[in-house]
Amino acid sequence: MNSKLKNSDTDFLFKAILSLENEEECYRFFEDLCTSPELKAMSQRLVVAKMLTEKKVYSEIVKETGASTATISRVKRALFDNDTYGYTLVLDKIAKEENK
């Protein structure tokens, strides 16, 4: 865990997110919390991570998502080169839920 991120404010944010019960509540909360470009950027990164785990190549990811190669590289590093495994954790949970 990144100790630079860990503080009571971030804990409070995560508790708020964990309190949400469905997509509608997420839309309502995140619309208030984030600007449209911020939310689109976060969504794009998650889609990029999914595509990288599906072994898609950069050119295909750029074409489908509009992400820059710098963004793709950053997501790839987070996905494969660090020990947080946040993307992997979420993508695995989504895949399990979809396979039910």
Score class of each variant (00 low, 15 high):
86 G>I: 07
31 E>D: 15
4 K>M: 09
48 V>S: 06
7 N>W: 09
78 A>Q: 14
8 S>Y: 06
2 N>P: 01
12 F>Q: 14
37 P>D: 14
52 L>M: 00
5 L>D: 11
90 V>L: 08
16 A>F: 01
30 F>W: 03
84 T>E: 13
47 V>I: 12
75 V>S: 01
50 K>M: 05
47 V>C: 08
82 N>T: 15
5 L>I: 06
61 I>H: 01
70 A>V: 13
87 Y>K: 04
2 N>H: 09
38 E>Y: 01
1 M>I: 07
2 N>R: 13
98 E>A: 11
77 R>W: 11
9 D>M: 07
96 K>C: 12
97 E>H: 13
63 K>F: 15
5 L>Q: 12
72 I>Y: 01
67 A>E: 11
91 L>T: 06
88 T>Q: 05
65 T>L: 03
91 L>Y: 02
57 V>Y: 15
99 N>Y: 11
95 A>S: 15
73 S>N: 11
36 S>E: 14
10 T>I: 08
36 S>W: 00
36 S>P: 02
79 L>V: 06
97 E>V: 10
94 I>G: 00
99 N>T: 14
35 T>G: 08
18 L>E: 06
59 S>M: 11
22 N>Q: 09
81 D>F: 09
20 L>I: 01
53 T>L: 15
37 P>C: 11
61 I>K: 03
60 E>G: 11
96 K>R: 15
20 L>C: 08
86 G>H: 05
99 N>A: 15
48 V>D: 12
12 F>G: 12
96 K>I: 13
27 Y>W: 12
85 Y>I: 00
82 N>L: 08
37 P>G: 12
93 K>L: 04
35 T>F: 05
53 T>W: 02
